[in-house]
Nucleic acid binder design. Structure first.
Lengths: 255, 255
DNA sequence: GAGTGGTCTAGACCACCCC
DNA sequence: GGGTGGTCTAGACCACTCT
C-alpha cells in the first residue's frame, strides 16, 4: 500500500477530526477490538496470523504487529511464538485469578475457594448507579461471599452487577461453577473483564465482617473497592472486598 | 550491518550461554543502561538521537528504537517527539511523587508537605538486612516523618537506608531540600529510584502513630511496606508508611 | 529548514511448534 | 517442512519542535 493510505483510512474513521492524526495501527487495533466484541474470535481461540490480518486490512505485517503488540500488552491478546495469537480468557488456569493481588507473606499466590453467603435482587443506589454507569433504580444483583485461603476465611466480598447483563443469575448457578467469578461470567454470560480499578483503604470490622472472617469487631481490615470494565471501558461490576490481612498482603509493583 | 552481526554480538556478550539467544535490542538496552549507571547522561538531560546511537552501536535505527521503547515503558527514559529522548528524573514536577498512589476520594492527587520527626543511626536488623540486601549489623539510617495532605497529617513514614550509600545524611539536609525524598536522593547522592514493590495490609494505630496522625489508638490504618530499587534491581530503601485513609485512598489499576 | 522522534513498508532471516 | 510469531534492516515519509 502506498503512503497515502494512512491518511485515507484516517479520514474515513476520523471522529469529528479530533486528534487531527490517528496512526494506522491504532485503527487496526480498533478493528481488532470490534471483531473481539462481535465474537468473531472467542476467548481461548486463536486469531488469524499476522500475515492474514495484514492482507485483510490492506496494511503491512509490521503495522498489524504493532496493533497486536499493544493488545497483548493490555492482556487482551496473548502471543505464543510458533503457535499463534490467542484471545485471553479468565478460564485459563494461569489467568483464573488475574486481578487478585493478595499474596501470602512468603510470596506464594494461593487460589482461594469460595463460600457463597447470599444473593439479593434490588435497585441501584446512587453510588452503584454512578459506578456501574446505569440509571438509579436499575435492577441490580448483589452477591456476597467469603474467599477462603488455605482453609482460612480472609476476604468478605460484596459484588454488585446489573441484572440486565446477568439474567437469571442465581446462587445455585454461581455455586455450581468452579473457579473465579470472572471465569464464570465469561463462560455463562459472555462478559469478559478487561481491566479494573481498585481503591484501598483501612476500615474497622463491623459485626457481620467480624463474624464472617473470624476476627473481633473493630479489627482493622483492608477494604478494596473495585470497578471492573469490559470492552470499551464499560463498567460492569462493582465490588467491595474486606480483607483480613493476617499472613497475607496486597502486593503491587510500581514503575 | 549484515544479519550475522546479531549472532556475533550475542556471542560476545553471552553470559555463560544461558538463554541460548538474546535479541540485539536487549543487548543495546543493557549498553544504554550501563551508560546511564556510569552517568554518561545525567537525569533530565537528553541522550543522543536514535540515528547517532544506531551508528555508535553499529545497528539499525529500528533496533535502537526498540531498546529505547522498552526503557521508556519502564519510565527510565522519556521520549518527546521533535525534541529528543531524556533521562527520567524524580526532580521534574510531574514526577516528584511518581510512586505515590494516595489520591483524594475525588480523584485529585495532592502533593504533600513533609514534617520530619527524627533521624537515627543504627545497625541493620535481620529484616532490614534482608530487604536492603546488606549484612546484618551494617550501619543504617532510619528517618521518620509525617506527610501532610491539604493541611492534614495522613502518612507516618519510617524510612530505612544504608548509611554507606547516603553519607552524612542529616535531618537538616533533608529538611532543607524541598519536594520528594527521591528527588533529594537523586540530586544529593546520585541515587535514582527505578521501581518499587509495595505490600499493603491493615493495622491498628499504636500510641505513637495515633498521636502523629491525630486518630485514636487502635484506629485502622493502611500499612504500606515499600522496597525501592535503583539500577540493576538493587534495593536501596525500605519504607513503612502508615496511612490514615480518611477522604483518601490508595489507587491502583489492574490490567 | 533542520533535527528529532513516530509511522509505515517490504523483505530477509531466525526461533519455536507441530505434523 | 511448513506455519507462526520474533528480530533486524534500509529507506521513505510524517508530525512536532525550535530557530
Amino acid at each position: 500500500m502506498d503512503s497515502t493510505a494512512q491518511t485515507t483510512l484516517n479520514a474515513l474513521n476520523a471522529p469529528t477530526q479530533a486528534p487531527s492524526f490517528r496512526p494506522l495501527y491504532d485503527q487496526i487495533k480498533i478493528l481488532l477490538t470490534q471483531s473481539l466484541i462481535a465474537g468473531e474470535w472467542k476467548p481461548g481461540e486463536s486469531i488469524p496470523s499476522e500475515t492474514d490480518l495484514a492482507a485483510r486490512f490492506g496494511v503491512s505485517q509490521g503495522t498489524v504487529r504493532k496493533a497486536i503488540d499493544q493488545l497483548a500488552a493490555e492482556n487482551i491478546l496473548i502471543r505464543r511464538q510458533g503457535k499463534g495469537t490467542f484471545v485471553a480468557t479468565h478460564t485459563a488456569p494461569q489467568h483464573q485469578y488475574r486481578f487478585l493481588r493478595i499474596f501470602a507473606n512468603n510470596g506464594e499466590k494461593h487460589h482461594p475457594t469460595t463460600r457463597f453467603i447470599d444473593l439479593k435482587k434490588g435497585k441501584a443506589s446512587a453510588v452503584a448507579a454512578r459506578l456501574l454507569d446505569v440509571k438509579i433504580g436499575t435492577p441490580v444483583i448483589t452477591l456476597r461471599r467469603v474467599l477462603v485461603f488455605a482453609g482460612r476465611p480472609l476476604i468478605l466480598d460484596e459484588v454488585v452487577v446489573s441484572a440486565a447483563r446477568f439474567p437469571s443469575l442465581t446462587l445455585e448457578l454461581a455455586e455450581a461453577s468452579r473457579g473465579s467469578l470472572y471465569s464464570f461470567f465469561e463462560t455463562h454470560y459472555g462478559v469478559r473483564m478487561i481491566r479494573a480499578e481498585e481503591r484501598l483503604s483501612a476500615v474497622s470490622a463491623d459485626v457481620f465482617a467480624a463474624e464472617q472472617l473470624g476476627v473481633r469487631e473493630g479489627a482493622p481490615l483492608l477494604a478494596i473497592d473495585r470497578i471492573a470494565f469490559t470492552y470499551g471501558d464499560k463498567p460492569v461490576e462493582w465490588r467491595r472486598g474486606l480483607v483480613h490481612t493476617d499472613g497475607y498482603a496486597y502486593f503491587n509493583e510500581l514503575a
